[in-house]
């Protein structure tokens, strides 16, 4: 359920819906920031059906990726894919 995708806020319009232009790999869509009013230009937000539902915590994402990298390092020598 709940297909939601991270995109980057390019521009925010004032107004009751806080409509922002959000870029998803270059494609842009109008997204309402009413549910995430703290988001600012440059932030990544997670978007579901035209609404940002959270501001992506870039540090947390980085921590996850580092943990994955550490796990891969310590992982076994290159072996055939499962």
């Amino acid at each position: 359920m709940c297909l939601a995708v991270p995109g980057r806020v390019l521009h925010i319009e004032e107004g009751p819906l806080l409509t922002a232009t959000v870029s998803f790999g270059g494609v842009t869509k109008d997204v309402s920031l009413v549910l995430v009013p703290e988001a600012t230009v440059g932030d990544y937000v997670i978007v579901h059906v035209g609404f940002a539902i959270s501001k992506l915590d870039e540090q947390a994402a980085q921590r996850s990726l580092e943990a994955f990298a550490a796990l891969s390092e310590l992982g076994e020598p290159e072996e055939s894919a499962p």
Binding site: L3, V5, G7, S23, F24, G25, G26, V27, K29, V47
Partner: peptide, 8 residues
Amino acid sequence: PVRGACEI
């Protein structure tokens, strides 16, 4: 961009 549009 096509990938992005497909994801959303």
